[in-house]
Design a protein around this nucleic acid. Structure first.
Lengths: 229, 229
DNA sequence: GAGTTATCTTACCTCGCGGTAAGATATAGC
DNA sequence: GCTATATCTTACCGCGAGGTAAGATAACTC
């Protein structure tokens, strides 16, 4: 199904159909609500997105939404949960890999960057936690802290095994997270850069730095930096 | 909520006094409004900060604010302008320095990070542009693009003069900007890390990378990196 | 096909926001 | 002091938001 070249492309098509009929299929309708809500939250922010906006894009009316969610905040929280689920997945994958700390950090950057190209993933880092109730906010924060701890531990591993230069793991982790999270702001799916391209460039720049390296140092790092042991 | 008695510490002291008397001093009162507004915008976001909140913290009532600003958005825009002014200052300073592209990038990171520890500076990168009218948004965006172009040109200089490894300047600039901008989220003035400490660590990590370098490569880079002492 | 139930709509409520009108009050100039 | 003016307050308006009540209607079950 080719995208019509003339239409600005942001224009809606697919999961509107979820509500085309009144057939009983709560699961997929709930999902449709969530996806359009995530879209709108990213376009206009949570605060400026009304439930009427969400309903209109789905071709229904506001009160219908209340058959699938208790209130507006629950929609937001579910977006967060879906997104953190995605991150969890890709993080679990890395945990399996063994290698130097530096390798694990690079893998982290790579897969985390990919998640930041998916709407639910973007929601996690781009939407404002302040819109959540304090209970839900605690849940999300706990999750984010978990991610942060993991990244820091990779960095500490790297310092220990000699693949990473001594540094403050806290600041290093924040700078990596910041660089990748910033994708939420500038990345556009329709843009010229593919997710993989960005992910690998980010991983390289952040681990190797901007500064030019001597060829042998480069070779060493590319090999995994583990040749010293 | 009980507030006046045992407020945490971020709680206000100084420029509340600006409105203690009704002496005619519009300039400093306007500034006081701006500073408390910036504070609140960072604490609760623009959308969740009502003009009543601002007024209350200043010890006055909402309509009094309209003697100093035409509307809420003007307050926000002035916060942006103040912040971009700060960035402009520190950027102009760097433009004077000559050196390798890498050195200029390091200097950029260092001083930009410092701006991100000041409330008005934080406003520029942390507040949501979507809250501005389209005209004001264009103004702010143009300014941000200017900063981005400048950073990219430093990177391109570095690639040309050999101090920076070949890379996509766009992605490199975004990753640097992201890492530093992220400070807006996690930095706390009362925290254990000083602004200088963070700034120099960021400059080092981003230019040199996480990966350990061979001594000679390190020496070479250190000879060209003025900000990492 | 009839009854039941999930689904969705129309109409409405309340609340807090940004913003305004009009009046009170202190300051500044003489 | 007296006046004029800048400053600030009390009272209010309209709007759009999130959310609810109650009824219409389509889809399933038997």
């Amino acid at each position: 199904m080719p995208k019509s070249a003339l239409v600005p492309k942001l224009a809606p098509q697919p999961h509107w159909k979820a509500f085309a009929s009144r057939r009983r299929d709560p699961a997929s309708k709930r999902e449709a609500v969530l996806k359009t809500a995530a879209e709108l939250f990213l376009e206009k922010s949570y605060g400026r997105t009304s439930l009427n906006d969400v309903a209109k894009r789905l071709g229904i009316t506001k009160p219908a939404l209340y058959h699938y969610f208790r209130n507006k905040e629950e929609i937001l929280l579910e977006c967060y949960r879906w997104g953190t689920g995605l991150i969890e997945e890709s993080l679990a994958e890395i945990a399996g890999h063994c290698g130097t700390g530096l390798e694990k950090v690079a893998a982290f950057i790579y897969s985390y960057a990919q998640v930041m190209t998916v709407n639910f993933g973007r929601c996690v880092m781009r939407l404002d936690e302040g819109d959540l109730s304090s209970k839900a906010r605690d849940e999300v924060r706990a999750y984010k802290r978990k991610i942060d701890r993991r990244l820091r531990s990779f960095i500490q591993d790297g310092i220990r095994d000699g693949s990473i230069a001594p540094c403050d793991p806290k600041i290093a982790a924040f700078s990596i997270a910041g660089a990748v999270n910033w994708m939420c702001v500038w990345y556009e799916p329709a843009g010229p850069l593919s997710a993989e391209e960005i992910a690998s460039q980010l991983a390289r720049t952040l681990t190797q730095g901007l500064a030019r390296r001597k060829p042998e140092a480069l070779r060493r790092a590319a090999a995994g930096g583990s040749s010293a042991d």
